[in-house]
Design a protein around this nucleic acid. Structure first.
Lengths: 104, 104
DNA sequence: GCTTAATGCAACCCTCGGGTTGCACATATG
DNA sequence: CATATGTGCAACCCGAGGGTTGCATTAAGC
C-alpha cells in the first residue's frame, strides 16, 4: 500500500496525465473519445491510462464495445492523507516515517 | 499553481529522492554526508537536492564550508491539502454527473 | 454476413533525466 | 602555508518512457 506511494506520485508527475484526469473529471470517456479532445494519439492516451490504472487512480468498465474510464477521487484523497501525515511527522522527526517509506 | 503541483509530484516520484528525504528526516546533512550513507555518488545526490529545492520540499543553509540540507515538512502538508481538495472536487463533480444522468 | 468503429499489440524514434567520472575551486585546520 | 575536505561544474553514458505509425483484432449495427 504505502510502497505504492512513490508510484502514485510518479504517475501524477506528468502534465499529459493530468490533462487526461481533467477531461475525465467532466464525465467518463473512452481512450478514443479522449484522443479527440487532446493533442495526442489514442495510443499515447491508452498508455497513460494504463499507468494511472496501475496505481489505482483510474478505473475502467465496458460499455458496448468501448472501454470507459473514470477517475477515483477517493484514491487521490487517500494519497493526500498519507502525504499530509508524512509531512506532519517530518517536522517532529518521528521514526515512524522511516517505517512507512521503507517498503521500497 | 497547478503547474507547480505537477512538478512537486514529479519530484516525489523517485525512489532515490525519497531515500534522501528519509535520511534528512534524521537530521540535517550535507550532500557529502548523504553520499556516505546512500549507494549513489555525491554528484547524483546534489542533482536530486537541486530538484527537491526547486519545488520547495528542501532547504539549505551553510555551516562552515559545508551546505546542510533540511526537509520542509510543511511543504508536503500544503501539497497534500491541495491534492485532497482536488480529489474531493472530483468525487463531487462525478456524483453530480451521475445524478444528472439518472434524471434527477 | 459486411462494414464500421472501437480496442490491442508491436516496433520504432528521440528526448529526458538519473548516474557516473574527472577536475577545478574554495575554505577550514594543522 | 600546506593539506585535506567539501562544493561546483561539465561532459558523457544509457536506460526509461512519452509519443508516434502501422496493422491486427474484435464486436456493434445494419
Amino acid at each position: 500500500m504505502t510502497e505504492q506511494l512513490v508510484a502514485v506520485f510518479a504517475a501524477l508527475g506528468d502534465d499529459t496525465r493530468w490533462s487526461i484526469l481533467l477531461a475525465l473529471g467532466e464525465g467518463d470517456a473512452s481512450a478514443s473519445a479522449l484522443a479527440e479532445r487532446l493533442p495526442v494519439t489514442r495510443q499515447a492516451i491508452a498508455k497513460h491510462l494504463a499507468v494511472l490504472e496501475q496505481v489505482g487512480v483510474v478505473d475502467s468498465h465496458r460499455v458496448g464495445r468501448e472501454l470507459r474510464w473514470s477517475v477515483l477521487g477517493s484514491r487521490l484523497g487517500d494519497t493526500a492523507r498519507e502525504l499530509d501525515r508524512i509531512g506532519a511527522e517530518w517536522d517532529r522527526r518521528l521514526a515512524a516515517i522511516k517505517r512507512i517509506a521503507e517498503g521500497l
